[in-house]
Amino acid sequence: MSSAWNWPLAALLAVAGFFAPVLLGGSPAIYAALVLIAIFAVMSYGLDSIVSDLGEVSLAHTVFFAVGAYVTALLSVRLGLDPVGTLVGTIIAALIAAGVLGLITLRLREFVFSLVTYAVAVVALTVAANWSFIGGSDGLRGIPAFEIGWLGIRAAGDVELWPIAFVLLLATLYVMRSFRRSRLGQAAIMVHLNPRLATMSGIDPQRTRLQVFLFSAPITASAGWLYAYQRAYVSADLLETYFLILMLTAVVIIGRRLLLGPLIGVALILAQEKFWSFGGYVDRIILGSLLILVLAYLPGGLFGLVQALAEARHRVRARAGDTSSQTRPRKADA
């Protein structure tokens, strides 16, 4: 695809995306669902760079998500900072958290790495539920509306939050696209697919890992930042496995390293949960089964399946063409 028509297409998609809630009927439920889709998609992109590019499984990304939400709640409720201030605080806190976790896990690989990140998430849940400074099991309430006075922005409710969520999503998509074209993105892929070659070409795998970690955490945390405003309260449930499974499924369901993959994945999952729900427990079974089935039977995701089907059809057609061209000379022989 040449970049000459890539940009207009992207712009067209962006405009269509912005008007998506109107196109879908514009009801409050639509706005609510789309704001959540945008937020959770941003959350998933942070994990996407670790799973798809670096090839490791971090199960601690719910922690970054919660760090964003909790920092936003603390700074806005206790210090009265506006969303710009809380976003800066969120990014700094996420970088610190990712730096600490990254350094601890620097020498760990594969499942030990994942185990430690998973344990971090579980321990964070018990800490969040017990530590009274951040509200304990009650959480923190009374987060003010999203309001940046000097820009004249005030967003209360999902309809007014939609433009902000959408801009955050677009910014994330842009950052992800730039990351994949950057030296760091290329290095991550090389470390993932061929660590030895990466080392020989002068890439330090551990350093690359740490850098990708530092890149990914603020993305997921910024989703937590907006989610805090959307919900107006935060509590330990931000660290529940639901968000982890949601992220993982969104990352793998469509296919890895596709720019729009996690967004479409989140949209599919939330559409089911919001509009075709079968109750909490059945929805859990559906989401978990989806994750299992895609990984076990569709390594390329749904996109890979579509590609394989298209190829198979193409092959069948080609074979049909072959046989017809082969039969003719035979008839002539006879």
């Binding site: 799973v51 090839g55 490791e56 499984v57 199960l59 594969e110 499942f111 994942s114 496995t241 982890l244 499974i245 993982l248 499924t249 793998v252 909490g280 427990y281 059945v282 929805d283 859990r284 079974i285 989401l287 978990g288 089964s289 994750l291 299992i292 990984l295 076990a296 390594p299």
Partner: peptide, 22 residues
């Protein structure tokens, strides 16, 4: 494929939780 196995088993845990709740 340890990476996928980890995620799949995590998914199984999630499904078991849902089924047990049901």
């Amino acid at each position: 494929d340890l990476v996928s196995i980890m995620i799949v088993t995590l998914g199984f845990g999630y499904v078991l939780h849902g089924a047990a709740g049901l």
